[in-house]
Design a protein around this nucleic acid. Structure first.
Lengths: 195, 195
DNA sequence: CTCTTAACTGAACAGATGTTCAGAACCAAG
DNA sequence: CTTGGTTCTGAACATCTGTTCAGTTAAGAG
């Protein structure tokens, strides 16, 4: 027997991507086999190659799609006061990352499993995202909105702090997302010494 | 031919551990083979089993040794004022992690590659380490040394921020370690709203 | 020098790996 | 009903995986 009834590219394709995303996040790229992905999709391993040229491209496509989404959704209203830009960034980062924990996890953990050219592409987008925060911090430093010793270092500290939310916060616990956002915004605002 | 001239357990043993640590940090546990470790040690794969019962134990031993070292080195003078305990913790965390980037990387990235019982052991030590920071934050809250909305969340935020240093800082750049410690201590002190 | 033993080799094991491909089964259009 | 093209199977490929072990070599003790 070959294909089973009711199977279509429009269904299998997304299913492959979702399954790979979940399994890569759970066990790591290197520890997940094509057969394992195929098994959870409900298909033989060979069929996956209708949707990706190879395993490496599957990882890269997932990471790239995530980064593109991130860049597109990132707030960028530079007409706002620096302090409001910073608040928008903080709240956005927490909410966006909270909505896609698997993709975030992969984007941070599987960088070393990318081929060199693929790595360069992803790393460039990340730099560009983090550059946005650094620009905000530098702007606020200029207007006297706050006082940081080094905008670059402060941006690293803020990003790390915010991304850390994903390691412990899940919806449905004792806190709502907006309460987490409030507390982190408070801490970030204090950390940079906002007046 | 069997063993080559001048080889000893006292040399090969540590070499196996060092090499495994480096390779696991560089490529990830699942992506590194026993043959690859053996090759860099200068030995055949079978010889590794004189030093570890299996690959999983090798990973576990490396992580456990790191966590034991961390717990032993952690400052614990509870006679100090909370603000001084917090400063000591911040400076210690940055310096200790800076000195062993590979071990730190593995301890954070390879948790999911531990067997269930091994994971429980490591996770317990990590919880206990982070609990120390939470206790400090709670103490300072009690004495009015600072004002955080939630000590648990603040401890997550501080840990994430401090651990993030390892992603960008290496000795020999434009900054010295103590300058990084100063800036992070400033940000942490601000973040918790120290008076 | 001889003997014992720790340290290591080299081959072997059974199974898993990513990837390819001829052919089968299905769907939709004419 | 026939045809064409898409989607999938099942087997095969060469290679790699962790691990075991009989046999070999070198180091150190007597």
């Amino acid at each position: 027997m070959a294909r089973t009834a009711g199977s279509h590219s429009g269904i299998t394709g997304p299913k492959v991507r979702q399954t790979a995303l979940r399994l890569f996040a759970e066990h790591g790229y290197a520890a997940v086999s094509m057969r394992q992905i195929a098994g959870e999709v409900g298909v033989q391993a060979g069929a996956l190659y209708n949707y990706t040229p190879d395993k490496q491209s599957l990882l890269f496509d997932l990471m790239q799609a995530h980064m593109v989404e991130l860049m597109a959704a990132m707030p960028q209203d530079s007409s706002l006061a620096p302090i409001d830009q910073l608040e928008a960034f903080v709240r956005f980062h927490i909410a966006f990352h909270h909505d896609r924990p698997d993709a975030v996890f992969i984007a941070y953990m599987e960088l070393r499993n990318l081929s060199e050219p693929n790595f360069a592409v992803i790393e460039d987008m990340r730099r560009s995202y983090e550059e946005r925060l650094r620009a905000i911090l530098t702007a606020g430093q200029g207007t006297g909105a706050w006082d940081v010793a080094d905008a670059q270092i402060a941006s690293f500290a803020v990003i790390a702090m915010l991304t850390g939310v994903n390691t412990w916060f899940r919806s449905g616990g004792r806190l709502r997302l907006d309460q987490v956002q409030d507390q982190y915004w408070q801490m970030v605002r204090n950390a940079v010494g906002a007046s």
